[in-house]
């Protein structure tokens, strides 16, 4: 079970979190149909580092961006949604 460092709550067990999807599979409201179909039905499942959207559902309920290595589960970064790695907004 992963240990995820929530920016608000500190290190917490994976059981408190819910995986939402890879960041690149977020479908915008005005997404074009071919892109939507790709994101829904043919998205990649990378082996290696991947940016993912998680939620600390059973904690502070924040949406979080995890930079996680799907091969060995190393978590390189945990950011709030809307925050960039250098601390700015995105």
């Amino acid at each position: 079970m992963l240990l995820i460092h929530c920016p608000h709550c500190g290190p917490r067990a994976q059981a408190e979190f819910v995986f939402e999807r890879p960041l690149e599979s977020i479908i915008q409201i005005d997404e074009a149909l071919p892109d939507l179909i790709h994101k829904l039905y043919s998205r990649v499942n990378p082996k290696g580092p991947s940016w993912e959207l998680w939620r600390h559902t059973y904690g502070c309920q924040s949406w979080l961006k995890l930079h996680r290595d799907t091969h060995n589960h190393t978590i390189h970064a945990v950011l709030e949604i809307g925050q960039t790695q250098d601390g700015g907004d995105a």
Binding site: V18, I26, I29
Partner: peptide, 12 residues
């Protein structure tokens, strides 16, 4: 959860 997703992720 869906309302939160739309508000925080799709339309912040």
């Amino acid at each position: 959860a869906h309302l939160s997703y739309v508000r925080k992720v799709l339309a912040p």
